[in-house]
Computed example of a mutant assay.
Amino acid sequence: MKNKLILFLFTMGSLGMSDIASAQESWFRRFVNKTISDTTAPGEPSFRIYPTLGYSPETSFEFGLSSLLIFQAKKDTLNRLSEVAAFTFITLEGQYGLWFDNAIYGDKDKWFFLGRTRFQRFPLLYYGIGPETPEKDPALIDANYLLLRQRVLRKIRPNLFIGPEVDYQQLYNTAFKQPDNHTYDKPLGSDGTRNIGLGAALVYDDRHNVLNVRKGFFGEISFLKYSPQLGSDFNFQGINLDVRSSHPVSVRNVLAWQVYGNFYSGNVPFNQLALMGGEMIMRGYYYGRYRDKNMIATQVEHRWLPFGFSKRFGAVVFAGTAVVAPKINAFTFKHVRPSGGVGLRYLLFPKKDIFLRLDVGFTKDGPGFYLFTGEAF
C-alpha cells in the first residue's frame, strides 16, 4: 500500500432529485438508486457495488470493483448484521486478484461463520525478517497466492462461541527478484510453499453491527497447527490474539481500541510470519514491511459518525504502535514502530449505519491510502 492512492466518486451521493428528474426511467437513475440510496426496508438484505481506482509503484494503475452484501438471518432485525464482502482488481502490470470476507451470524447467534479468501497474482515487497531491516531497496517476490481460512463457531453461552478453524495457504509460480543495490538471503518458502493448518478458536462477541461498532467488545484467541501429516511443507504452529472494544462518547462520537498479537514457533515460511502493516492495523506501513515470528500491535481511534453538520460525511483520527521479534522475550521498546493518520467517512447504508472509509496512514516510510467498506476494527 506504500504511496497508494485510491479514489471513489463520493459526489454521486449528493445528487438531488432535481438533477435526475429528466431521466427518471434512465439506467443512470436506477444505478444511483441501487448503489447510493438505501431504499431497503428494515431486515431486508442490502447490496452495493462500486468501482475503485488505485496506484502504487509496484503495480502502476489498479482498477477494481468492490461489492458488499449485508443481511440479517430470517430478516429479523433483532439478529446481528451479517456481511459478505468481495473485491476484485487488475493492474496495468498484469497483476490481478479476488478477495472475499465473511462474517455470517445464524438465527439467534446459534452459528457464527468467520473467514476470508484470497487469490491474487501480486508482487510482495520483501525487506527481510526482524525488527531492523533495510530502509529501502526491497526484494520483489512475484507469485500466485491462495488463502482459504474459515472458522465455524457454535454459541455455547450468550456472545461466546467456540469451534474449529482451518487455514490453507499456497504460494506458487514464484520469482525472487533481488534489488540492484542490496542482496537478500532467500527466506524459507520463497521458492513456493503450501501449508494446511487445523486448530480451534474461542470468540467473545457482543457487537451488533460488525462494520460500524458504536458499542461492543470482541475478543478472540485461536491456535493453528501446520504439519506434514496435514499436507504442509513446513512444521510450525501459532497462537493469535485479537481484542477490540468500542465506547460511545456521544450519539455521534465513538472511541475504539484494539490489541492484536501473533506468536509463532517452528519452521515458519516468510509469508506466514507475523506481518506488520496493511489496511486493518498499523495503517501507513506496507503489509509485511516488518515481519518475524512474533508481533504485538495496538491502535486507538476516535470516530465522528457522521459530523454534526452533515447527514452523510464523517471522519476519524487514529494512532498505533507495533513491534516484531524472533522470540517473545526479545521484544524491545527501541523497535516499537509508530503510525497515525486521519480518515474520511461516507454513509453508504444510512438504514444499516455502515460507512465507506478512506484512510490516510502516516509513517516514516510515507503515507498509505486505503478505501474499504466498514471500519478497520
Rank of each mutant, 00 (worst) to 15 (best):
L202R: 10
H208L: 14
H208K: 15
H182Q: 09
L147E: 11
Y226P: 09
P164C: 08
A143G: 06
R118F: 00
F176E: 02
L202W: 13
L124M: 10
S227E: 10
I162A: 14
A139G: 06
W111H: 11
V213S: 13
W111S: 07
I104H: 07
R118K: 07
F112E: 05
A139Y: 01
V152H: 10
L147N: 10
F119T: 02
K110N: 07
D142G: 02
R214W: 04
L202T: 13
T183K: 14
Y127L: 00
P123N: 04
Y105L: 05
E165M: 14
K108Y: 05
V210C: 08
N212G: 10
S227V: 03
F100I: 03
W111F: 14
L171G: 03
Y184E: 06
N144Q: 10
L124F: 12
D142K: 09
L114M: 12
D137I: 01
D107P: 02
G189M: 07
K108A: 11
R121H: 14
L202V: 15
I129F: 03
R157Q: 08
L188H: 08
R207T: 15
I196S: 10
N173M: 05
A201V: 09
I141C: 02
I104G: 08
D205W: 10
K215V: 00
D167F: 05
P158C: 02
E135P: 00
Y105G: 07
F218P: 09
L202N: 11
E135I: 05
S227P: 02
R116S: 13
L124C: 00
Q120N: 12
L147S: 10
I129A: 04
P138W: 05
V213N: 11
L148W: 04
N102Y: 14
G128E: 01
E220K: 15
D109Q: 11
K215F: 04
F112Q: 04
F113M: 13
K108W: 00
H208I: 14
H182F: 15
K108S: 12
A143V: 03
D109I: 01
D137Q: 08
F119K: 04
Y226C: 08
N195D: 15
Y184V: 01
D101P: 00
L140M: 05
R121V: 01
L188F: 07
R149H: 08
G219N: 11
K177M: 06
G163P: 04
F100C: 02
L202S: 09
I129N: 09
P187D: 10
Y105T: 02
K177H: 13
I221F: 13
N212Y: 09
N173E: 14
L125R: 10
I156Y: 11
G130K: 07
R149F: 03
D206A: 11
G106T: 02
E132M: 05
I129V: 12
W111G: 05
I196F: 15
G192H: 08
L160E: 04
L224D: 11
T133N: 12
G163L: 05
L125Y: 02
E132Y: 02
K225C: 04
K215W: 03
G163C: 04
A143L: 05
I104A: 11
K155S: 12
L224R: 15
P179D: 02
